[in-house]
Design a protein around this nucleic acid. Structure first.
Lengths: 347, 347
DNA sequence: CTGTTAGCGCCTTCAG
DNA sequence: CTGAAGGCGCTAACAG
């Protein structure tokens, strides 16, 4: 029923080996023969059997991209860019093409491990891990081990927007969250803010810690006391809910820094509900600079992370198209973007 | 080097077949034997070779989810829900688990076809197509043929949020875009608007046409003349740019309906830049009711599509967990959500 | 309940 | 440059 390589060979009156060779294009074949084979392929509408070739070649053309939340553009942008870089080269006909595929872990370490196992089972050509991992020794050991195993099996591993993991043979592209957060805090400080609330991400993630550290460093350098901190998720509801807690701790807050732009939106909404104007009564800042941030009212002051560029680079790294930096992990800078949601505090 | 099923069999002192049976759990095996095998699996840290089993079983555990734009939450939400439904059952140990995987077509018909071929090559267990397809006879014929081929090969095909495609043996879940758009227009009409601009999506997509048809139907029923229409993409920039064209055609517009919420945000921004208040000077409405819409300022009037529910259902359908409706395509209703971005026109 | 026997479809030396 | 032969790791009848 389904047409196999042997069928093509018969139709083209060559051996299966020859068909394999023209399809994979990594072996000299006479032009005339190739032509004949190609015709047969088209006439028969032949589609190679992936599992069979993966089995025989001991490697597949699958590239997995793990994300924490597929409904969050933060990940969507990186994943899309990576897929673009991977799918783009779009080699020849039936062969070549890699299947770049994104897997949604929901931020759950267990699901992440499950996906890694699944990808390992598929003998994936590469795996890209994006987003902040949880800081848990057990989890850390488990991923490290799993990544090591993947590496041994020939799967290329790249960490994108995630801190380096020593012990794992992974190429890494980390965001400079610490510096970004520091710049943002400095900006607020320069405007004159002294009572700054902070809506942080989940307490157990590296990104949360790094951003908080940068924020505190700026405060400490300026000799300003730290304001209230409320932890929550990366969704707007968390930001919305956090406002009450922040204000309870310090009703005189003049600025709020959010874990990311989405959270900032929730913060803005909650502030407005209380009759507070932005930035007249309270300044608000986000992080990431997602596309919608410029359209918020007022436009959000935030820290831009080159998500697209990082994703594309991760894709090339996964493909082996780009060589990893010889000198270890690459740190991608974050850039302060000042817009209208921050201003000097009411005097 | 890599441990195989045979290694496990040797360690457990059983035949390879027995190991296969306990791993797949679809065959009676003595408890004691199973226990022994499991122990060997753990001790050896055995991970089955996916390609090998796919080859032997002539089917894989891969489920593909095709989306038009992975950076758009519209798709992210559906894809996430589908993946949740598929990954959730999370059967036993090494076996069971399906690998739900999302592929970003970028809305490009060719890439969509490429992905389908890739998935076909992998002998995917199922494929879920989401989002609006282009209306092109050639493309239509090509997908229909491809889907037919996939169906023959045992791949389950489900269309989610996409109109039925006759000729293809696909289960379909379509959104009632037409009725949703009609309700939205009726809402504006009831408020008293008579000069309504429309920022439509790409001209060649079914969703664009359906929403426009619903919009026009409402206008026609009310005997109101159609206002200016500007086509564009589904991004905020398109909405932003369209405003100038709309206003050029009718400077007296009192309301603008956008292709979706993201576009509506762009429309709002452009309107504000011109000093027009929302909804005081111009009412604006979106479509889809994405999470950020409630946080926009003002909160967006829109049409809610049960994205999460539809995605989850598509996932179950793809898994075969839920039986498709016997009586053909299912139409999922859209619900008008009135918020603060629409109001009666200035009299 | 468990072992034996054949392949699944393709890649890859090895000859020619 | 092309053909022949063996095996990748696992599943699926069959026997027992």
């Amino acid at each position: 029923m389904t047409v196999t390589l042997a069928d093509v060979a018969a139709r083209a009156r060559v051996s299966p080996a020859t068909v394999s060779r023209v399809l994979n294009g990594n072996y000299p074949v006479a032009a005339a023969t190739r032509e004949r084979v190609m015709r047969a392929v088209d006439e028969l509408d032949y589609v190679p059997n992936g599992p069979a070739s993966s089995l025989a070649a001991a490697t597949s053309d699958l590239v997995g991209i793990l994300v924490n939340d597929i409904a969050d553009p933060f990940f969507g942008i990186m994943a899309g860019a990576a897929q673009g870089a991977i799918g783009a080269p779009g080699a020849g006909r039936a062969g070549g093409e890699k299947l770049a595929v994104v897997c949604n872990t929901g931020g759950d370490p267990e699901r992440e491990l499950t996906y890694l196992t699944l990808l390992q089972r598929q003998r994936a050509a590469a795996v890209i891990l994006t987003g902040s991992p949880v800081e848990d020794p057990g989890y850390r050991a488990a991923v490290t081990a799993k990544l090591a195993r993947l590496g041994e099996a020939g799967t290329r591993v790249v960490l994108c927007g995630r801190p380096p993991l020593d012990g794992a043979a992974a190429t890494t592209l980390a965001f400079d969250n610490r510096t970004g957060a520091r710049r943002l805090a400095e900006h607020l400080l320069e405007l004159g803010h002294r009572r700054i609330g902070y809506v942080a991400g989940p307490a157990d993630r590296t990104t949360t810690r790094h951003r908080l550290e940068g924020h505190r460093a700026a405060l400490a350098a300026a000799g300003v006391a730290e304001g209230p901190v409320a932890h929550g998720g990366y969704d707007r509801a968390s930001g919305h809910a956090a406002v009450a807690r922040l204000l309870a701790e310090d009703p005189g807050l003049t600025a709020v820094v959010a874990a990311n732009d989405t959270v900032a939106l929730g913060v803005c909404a909650a502030l407005r509900e209380r009759g507070l104007g932005i930035p007249d009564d309270v300044s608000v800042a986000g992080f990431d600079d997602l596309p919608f941030s410029v359209d918020a009212a007022p436009a959000l002051t935030t820290v831009r992370l080159p998500l697209h560029e990082a994703g594309a680079r991760a894709g090339r790294l996964a493909l082996g198209t780009e060589d990893p930096a010889a000198d270890g992990p690459v740190t991608i800078p974050a850039e302060l973007v000042v817009r209208n949601s921050t201003a000097a505090p009411r005097s």
